Amino acid sequence: MLIGLVLILVVWIGAGWAMVAVAGPFKPSGVFIDIGGGRKMRLVCAGPPAGPTPTVWMEPGAFGLAADFAAIQQKLTAKGIRSCAYDRAGMGWSDPGPKPRDAAAIADDLAKLIAASGEKGPFILMGHSMAGLYVRLYAGRHPEQVAGLVLIEATTPEQIDNPNTQKFIGAFTSLSKVAAVSASVGTTLPLYWTAGDRIGLPPQGSAEKRHAYVSGRHARTAAEEVGNWERSAREAAAAPPYDPDWPVSVIVVDRGEGDRPGDARRAPERAAKHGTFEAVKGASHTTILGMTYGDSAVRGVEFVLAHLKSPGA
């Protein structure tokens, strides 16, 4: 029985390696920026050169990387808007970073990357999912770098004490550990084509997402970030709140719940002098970033830009 299971596992993993091999050689997009100490991070910028319109700087969610925003970057480029997305340390093609992989470490790396990249702020910060915590801490530490915010299905530090949030974090942490082990031993490889891109990305972004999905290093780092969720939330909560003068767009999936007055995800939008909210019908937590539903993010950026230019903004 045991020998049979081992043989099945070997065949499964072997089939996965064959699938990845058939995909052929692969080169990720973007450039590699030395942020100091010999560490390099991958940065993918798109659109026209930086000008009077703020660049959109993108922070992916749990298990995410620059590729998560490939569809939105394509859509923003078509509008003449510059954007930059990156792989956090140890994720995708970026070198590992110091531990623990919490919001503080991620904000430190981001500050170094922006400085080394030569990209000029202030930026419109865009964060998806767990990146809401990282965006909050970075904005609190570097308010001079912020023009406005687009928060997509974004977690807020105010959610951390909610019992439902605590329950979700516990389950997600356990699942993340399983995913890290699975990717590390190669059992995710046969899912390269079917599960690697659940966003709906253009070809290059989709290929990058699939490669990250079967990467043990990527999954282990992601699991560590998830394991530090509560620590990151506490760090973000201790940071200064968003400046109410910053225009804020909050975008979520329409789950048929209606307008929930106590929804902490809407707190940044409700506290802003210029805020907007959109619930996207038909989208999921992942597809909201893709080619089908990513226009909602573009609308969010356009809202922020319009209110930057409005009198008194």
Score class of each variant (00 low, 15 high):
R234H: 13
R234F: 00
R234Y: 01
R234D: 00
E235M: 14
E235H: 13
A236P: 04
A236N: 02
A236G: 04
A237I: 02
A237N: 04
A237H: 07
A237P: 04
A238D: 08
A238V: 10
A239S: 08
A239T: 01
A239M: 03
P240G: 05
P241I: 06
P241S: 07
Y242I: 05
Y242T: 03
Y242E: 04
Y242M: 06
D243K: 14
D243W: 14
D243F: 15
D243V: 14
P244E: 03
P244T: 05
D245T: 14
D245C: 04
D245Q: 11
D245N: 11
W246L: 03
W246H: 03
P247A: 02
V248R: 02
V248H: 06
S249H: 07
V250E: 03
I251P: 03
I251L: 15
V252S: 08
V252G: 07
V253W: 05
V253G: 05
D254T: 00
D254E: 03
R255F: 05
R255Q: 11
R255K: 13
G256K: 09
E257I: 09
E257A: 15
E257W: 00
G258V: 09
G258Q: 09
G258P: 14
G258T: 09
G258N: 10
D259F: 14
D259C: 00
D259I: 14
R260E: 14
R260D: 15
R260A: 13
R260H: 08
G262A: 13
G262P: 08
G262E: 13
G262V: 10
D263Y: 10
D263C: 08
D263I: 05
A264P: 01
A264S: 07
A264N: 02
R265S: 13
R265Y: 00
R266D: 13
R266A: 12
R266F: 12
R266S: 09
A267I: 13
A267Y: 11
E269Y: 06
E269A: 15
E269H: 06
E269D: 09
R270M: 00
R270I: 00
A271T: 06
A271D: 04
A272Y: 03
K273R: 15
H274E: 10
H274T: 08
H274P: 00
H274I: 00
G275D: 12
G275T: 10
G275L: 11
T276C: 10
T276M: 14
T276K: 13
F277Q: 12
F277H: 15
F277M: 13
E278S: 14
E278G: 00
E278Y: 10
A279E: 11
A279W: 05
V280H: 07
V280Q: 04
K281Q: 14
K281R: 15
K281I: 05
G282F: 08
G282V: 05
G282M: 10
S284C: 08
S284R: 11
H285Q: 05
H285P: 01
